[in-house]
Design a protein around this nucleic acid. Sequence first.
DNA 1: CGACTATGTAACTTGACACTTACGTAAGTC
DNA 2: GACTTACGTAAGTGTCAAGTTACATAGTCG
Lengths: 111, 111
Amino acid sequence: MEAAIRAIAEPHRREILRLVWTAELAAGEIARHFDVTRPAISQHLRVLKEAGLVSERRNGTKRLYRARPESIAQLRAYLESYWDENLRLLKQAAEQEEQRRIRRDRRHESH
Amino acid sequence: MEAAIRAIAEPHRREILRLVWTAELAAGEIARHFDVTRPAISQHLRVLKEAGLVSERRNGTKRLYRARPESIAQLRAYLESYWDENLRLLKQAAEQEEQRRIRRDRRHESH
DNA sequence: CGACTATGTAACTTGACACTTACGTAAGTC
DNA sequence: GACTTACGTAAGTGTCAAGTTACATAGTCG
């Protein structure tokens, strides 16, 4: 999971992921979309693969890559829960503050 | 935006963000939650601040930090649209494939 | 003013990372 | 078997990031 987050922090890799999202593409085809060298893309593909975000399939001399929706969904879910958990805590904190304010007001009334 | 993504790719910073999500905390209080030195946290706070993810307020000798919900929401929205846009493309590709399959079948029928 | 507290910043080390070029290799092609 | 295609990988480089220690700064309190 940690690896997945670091993987998508890199713009080239986000773009690669986008490319292989809908279609299975060969490494060379992917590299053609960028202005960096083919080996550089090859290394990005490795990072994505080790993070579990893409799968590789060999066909002849070609290596075909495609996104792995399950693990991408997992990453997404992780981030969702990160935001949501914190939002929950935020609400909770606001409510507790509200409670404190009410108790404070009551004390003032009794004077 | 790019800075924000890189900022949350670091686990310490995600944890810091979580800490200042609900409460405004002083730099020292934040640092106490970690086993790295205080200056290290100070630098993480700067990264978060420059990414717009936290705000800083000075009070006496203290500097109080808290999360900036708006920019966090923006980051979240960016990622959401990244997933969603790609999901949309995925569906679209599947439909086009389906169309191709149908046309292919029709040709075969006519033979 | 002088001491103390809370914190940022400078300088440095170390390791990771995004590249490059050069080379190795497996699978088709003549 | 030689040639070509489509790759990955090794090795080297420049840069950046995360951490450290040492020091500077700003506010507070007597």
